[in-house]
Design a binder for these strands. Sequence first.
DNA 1: GGGTCAACCAAGCAAGCGCTAGTGTAAATG
DNA 2: CATTTACACTAGCGCTTGCTTGGTTGACCC
Lengths: 194, 194
Amino acid sequence: MNVMNASPRRKELTRLAAQLFVQEGFDRTTVRMLAQEMGIKSGSLFHHFRDKQEILAAVIEEGTENALVIAKEALSRCDSSASSRLHAMARAHLETLLTDRNAHVVALYEWRRLDSEARAHLGHLRDAYESLWEEVIDDALAAGLVHGDRFLVSRFVMGALNWTVRWYDPDGTRTPDELADELVVMITRSASTR
Amino acid sequence: MNVMNASPRRKELTRLAAQLFVQEGFDRTTVRMLAQEMGIKSGSLFHHFRDKQEILAAVIEEGTENALVIAKEALSRCDSSASSRLHAMARAHLETLLTDRNAHVVALYEWRRLDSEARAHLGHLRDAYESLWEEVIDDALAAGLVHGDRFLVSRFVMGALNWTVRWYDPDGTRTPDELADELVVMITRSASTR
DNA sequence: GGGTCAACCAAGCAAGCGCTAGTGTAAATG
DNA sequence: CATTTACACTAGCGCTTGCTTGGTTGACCC
């Protein structure tokens, strides 16, 4: 078994698992289906993962870590105005949601299938990400760009963005960046400069 | 078997099933668990429902029909100003989400477990509900209350509201009506009169 | 008072489930 | 060369799953 998540083979298996979990749901995805998709027999799966739950945890961990990295980079790359930071965060959020779509859909839909230790560990990762959002919202509130309660606004915004996985069509005419900007337009009072 | 959904016994079974589906998820809820919760043996379940999927469809149908009724009533009860209608719709949405919470959580999380015919039927119900929202958003846009694209705004708003099932605490200090009003404040330009 | 019918039960089948045990093998390591 | 390691295989155990079958019960009806 391979405890490190860094093994390249394991990374690839995790990616394939994410796709199957999205298509079928975690419970309906059998270890035999996973193995076939990976081109091995079902028994061999347990050389890479302790059990089925660990595959789920690996999928979600990948996605959440990527989201954190992308958001932090985006924030560090833009100037410090509240408006810029708000745009950058919204764009980063949708970029992750799109490029790592499978992993995030799994995280949103199958969170409750995690056992308690995995949930605790991944919960911290998620909290770190969400507190990034709350900082950005705080700045926007202080700048008078947005009105309302800090907690509520960040929840509403994340809800609106996460909901996009249910209707967004990557082959459509709108880019994720346009989507993000439209959301910012909707919630901001004054014309916002990028 | 009882094809009508109106049988009182069936209604009660549907309510209990919704609760279990929320607690455990559809796939992990066995017919034996359902039967026990209902105080009967697992075989007897199939006197009321053709199969397990039909129970899921019944749960979602209940919730969606209720949502439609509540929203229509709310809209017919308020005056015709864009602002009033926006407030009324948001409040109705959260009221349904709260009082019929189990059914709606199931609808949001387990939609993909429906077979294709059930999905087609319930899809129409959902579309009817969503077009109510789009009308209200249209009015708000025309009145200059909200800025942006009609399709995007309605999606963002529904996303923000539906996301509440993941974090809202009914025992907390905020009422659903306050939540709805806060959302309207966030997305509207001018001070909105109720 | 025979007939009807919804509601339930006991028993179990066939299929599928996650996972384990034991083995083979080719490449890396000392 | 001997040993270890990574990865895969075969075979199947023990259990649970959704659902079926055949039969019983009691309330209601002409």
